[in-house]
Structure formats: C-alpha cells, structure tokens
Simulated assay, not measured.
Amino acid sequence: MSERPTVIAIEGLTKRFGEITAVDAVDLDLRENEFFALLGPSGCGKTTLLRMIAGFTGPDAGRILLDGRDMTPVRPNRRPVNLMFQSYALFPHMTVTQNIAYGLEMEGCGRDEIRRRVGEMLEMTELSPLKDRKPEHLSGGQRQRVALARALVKRPRVLLLDEPLGALDKKLREQMQLELKRMQHEVGITFVIVTHDQEEALVMADRIAVLKDGRVMQVGAPRELYEYPASRFVAGFIGKMNFFAGQGRGAEVAFGDGVLTGTAPGGVELAGPAVAAVRPERLRLAPQRPEGSLNAVPGRIVDIAYHGQDLNVHVEVRGAVDSAGGEAGARVLVRLPAGEAEEGDWQAGQDVWCCWAPAHTRVLAM
C-alpha cells in the first residue's frame, strides 16, 4: 500500500512549563485517513502535544503545518480540527439531537443542512432511537457516541481525542474501541488519540508514537512496535516483555554460561551492558535442554496462573531483570496456549528450560 499524504506535519515542537520541558523538539507526520495514537505514561507530554495541535496551548518553539499551511499562530476556532474531551462536555438541558446540532447552529448553517447532517450522524452512531433523550438518561457508551457525533458533524480535517474511553468500564471500553475504529473508516478523516493504554493503542491505531519525557521514542505500526522495539523503554512499555541481562556482543548477549542470539535495532553492533528481550508467548518450556536450541536458559517454576485461554507460568531464572532494570525477583513469564499447557502438565517446583528462537529475540542496550 502506498504511503498516504501528510495532513499535519509537526516540526521541532517544544513546550516548557517553568523548568519542566513537557514536549521536547517533537517531529511527527500525521497522514490522511489514518488512526494515529500518542501513547505513553502519565506526564510524558502527550496531552500537551494534543492541545498544541488543537491550538489551546501555544508552543515555545517549532511549528504545526496543516496541508502545508502554518497553523501555529491560528486560533483554535479557526483551525479545521476538533478536540473531543474525556468528560464529553455534553449540554445537560439539551437532547441528543440538540447536542449534535449545536456546533452547526453556531456556524450559521441552514436548517435543512443541519437536519440532514445531524440525521446522518444519528444513523452512523446508531443513536436514532435515542435522539430525544437528554444526557442524564444515557449510558456512558451512549454519551460517548453523542460527543463523537457532535465532533464529527462539523466535518473537521482532523479529530483529536483525549483519553475518550477513560471513563468506561473494561467491557464497554473494548466495545467502543471497535466502534471508534469503524467510525473512523466510515467518515474517512484522520483521528489522533491520546492514551496510556497499550492494548487500546494496539487495537485501534494504524500507527503509534511512543513518548517518554516529552520525546518521541519510536513511531510505527502496532506490529512493528510490538515485535521490533527500538529501545528497552518501548520494549517494556508495550505489552509484557522478558529481559535477560548480560554483555552485548554484536547481535548476541553473553548470559550465564552461554550466549543469547537475536537482532539489534537497525543492525547496530552492541557492546557493553545489554539485554535479550523476548515476549512471553514466544517462550516454550522443556524438561531438558532441547538439542540444537540456540536460546535456552534453565530455571525453576515458582508459580502457575490459569487464565482460561492460556496459562501464565512464572519461572525463576538467575539474571532476569524487569523493564526498569531491577531484579524482578529473577522471574520470567512464559505464556502457554491452553492446549499446549495441558500436554505439559507443568508443576510448581519443577526444573525446566525456557527455550525460544533467535528470530524472536531483540538485543537492546541497557
């Protein structure tokens, strides 16, 4: 698939609050009709970045281009973007229809045009049966859809969403993730979402920017970030990851009495402290070391947790560390599918070997 044209280009964007640099020289391109996620821990600068795109916060340096036009000095109400807040900010005294129509009325649209466009939004968001209700008589998911319809009815070039699913329970969040993705495809505009939920970003986004301390650590498609993280931070932040600490030697890590082989970001030859990173679902257990296995470490099962569709086996391995560099109780997580778990009949206290393929190993600097 050919690369989509850029809608918003962010160049060297920087924002400081006193001595704190919230956004630090960020460069990003947001493309036509894509679902883009700004992902990172609390305080990483993602909401500040979103507010600068919307125009509610001014940058200290850098600029924001929309379709090649510098939007940095343009006021929020003059930008072809719309920001949907986590609180939804619906008018409690208005019906669903009136809430959706409000923005068009403020723009002076004709009555027939408002009726037609609001009707389209009611149908697309499946709110037609609820059009005469007020927000107090709607569920959390229904209020979320009203806020989304109100934002989309104005046909913005880009829709910005700040933690839009944060107030919903887990089951409803999962349902609305798919709903948001469906609507984005139907309306065909660029969505930019701020979230700290890794699974949410992986499910919805076409591309993700991972932020830390105001800087972009890596940008890529969900599978790229999950399978090929460029740094230890990204590897540890997105999903579960096991780390085996040792000395880097090219694309290998000296670990225990042997070496663990993998690939390094960009083919960089590492030297010095490094980790071999591998996902829990890539590990397999064996009672003895399999012949010809390149990556294998001995350990002892300390805990087993049943999750229905899979089994989480915690194995004590000397030299394993957590994502922050601590000893993590020297534990490694092995995630086995239910069928494979039944065949193994693993027990706590059992001595085992954790084995995996070099293709599933990422060698990263400490």
Rank of each mutant, 00 (worst) to 15 (best):
His93Cys: 02
Arg78Glu: 12
Val74Ala: 03
Asn82Phe: 10
Pro73Asp: 00
Cys109Tyr: 11
Ile114Met: 13
Thr95Gln: 04
Ser87Met: 03
Cys109Asp: 11
Ile100Leu: 11
Pro76Val: 07
Gly103Lys: 10
Pro73Ser: 06
Asn77Met: 06
Arg111Trp: 05
Arg69Ile: 12
Ile64Val: 15
Pro73His: 03
Phe91Cys: 06
Leu66Ala: 12
Pro92Asp: 09
Ala89Ser: 13
Arg79Asn: 04
Gln98Asp: 14
Leu104Thr: 09
Glu107Gln: 15
Tyr88Glu: 03
Arg63Ala: 05
Pro73Gly: 04
Asn77Thr: 01
Arg75Leu: 13
Ile100Met: 10
Ala101Gln: 03
Gly108Leu: 04
Arg78Thr: 00
Asn99Ile: 05
Leu65Cys: 04
Arg117Ala: 11
Val96Ser: 03
Asn99Trp: 08
Pro92Lys: 09
Val81Met: 15
Leu104Gly: 10
Thr95Arg: 04
Met84Ser: 08
Glu113Trp: 10
Leu83Phe: 09
Arg115Pro: 00
Asp70Gln: 05
Gln98Tyr: 00
Arg115Ser: 15
Val96Thr: 11
Ile114Thr: 10
Leu90Asn: 05
Leu90Ile: 03
Ala101Lys: 10
Arg69Glu: 14
Leu83Glu: 05
Arg78Pro: 00
Val81Trp: 05
Gln86Met: 08
Leu66Trp: 00
Pro80Asp: 14
Arg115Glu: 15
Glu107Ile: 01
Arg111Asp: 09
Ala101Glu: 13
Arg63Pro: 02
Leu83Pro: 08
Arg78His: 13
Arg115Asp: 15
Asn99Gln: 07
Arg69Gly: 00
Gly103Cys: 07
Thr97Gln: 11
Gly68Cys: 11
Asn82Pro: 02
His93Pro: 08
Phe91Ile: 08
Ile100Gln: 07
Met71Trp: 04
Ile114Ser: 12
Arg78Gly: 13
Glu105Arg: 15
Ala89Ile: 05
Asn99Thr: 05
Gln86Leu: 11
Gly103Val: 07
Asp67Phe: 06
His93Thr: 14
Met106Gln: 15
Glu107Arg: 15
Cys109Glu: 14
Asn77Glu: 15
Phe91Thr: 07
Glu105Ala: 13
Asp67Lys: 13
Leu66Glu: 08
Ala101Phe: 09
Gly110His: 12
Asn77Val: 07
Arg75Ile: 00
Pro76Ile: 09
Thr97His: 13
Arg63Met: 02
Arg69Ser: 01
Tyr88Trp: 10
Gly103Ser: 09
Arg111Gln: 14
Val81Asp: 01
Ile64Cys: 02
Leu104Val: 09
Asp67Met: 10
Ile64Glu: 00
Glu107Asn: 09
Gly103Asp: 08
Glu107Leu: 14
Met71Cys: 02
Gln98Gly: 02
Arg111Ser: 15
Ile64Gly: 00
Arg69Asp: 06
Ala89Cys: 06
Gln86Arg: 10
Ile64Pro: 01
Leu65Thr: 01
Gln86Gly: 04
Gly108Val: 04
Asn99Tyr: 03
Arg79Asp: 00
Leu65Ile: 05
Glu113Gln: 14
Gly108Pro: 06
Pro73Glu: 01
Ile64Arg: 00
Phe85His: 08
Ile64Phe: 00
Gln86Ser: 12
Glu113His: 10
Asn99Ser: 07
Val74Trp: 02
Cys109His: 14
Val118His: 13
Gln98Asn: 02
Glu107Ala: 15
Asp70His: 06
Ser87Gly: 04
Asn99Ala: 09
Ile100Cys: 03
Arg115His: 13
Arg117His: 14
Arg116Pro: 00
Leu65Met: 13
Phe85Gln: 07
Ser87Lys: 12
Arg69Ala: 13
Pro76Cys: 10
Met106Glu: 12
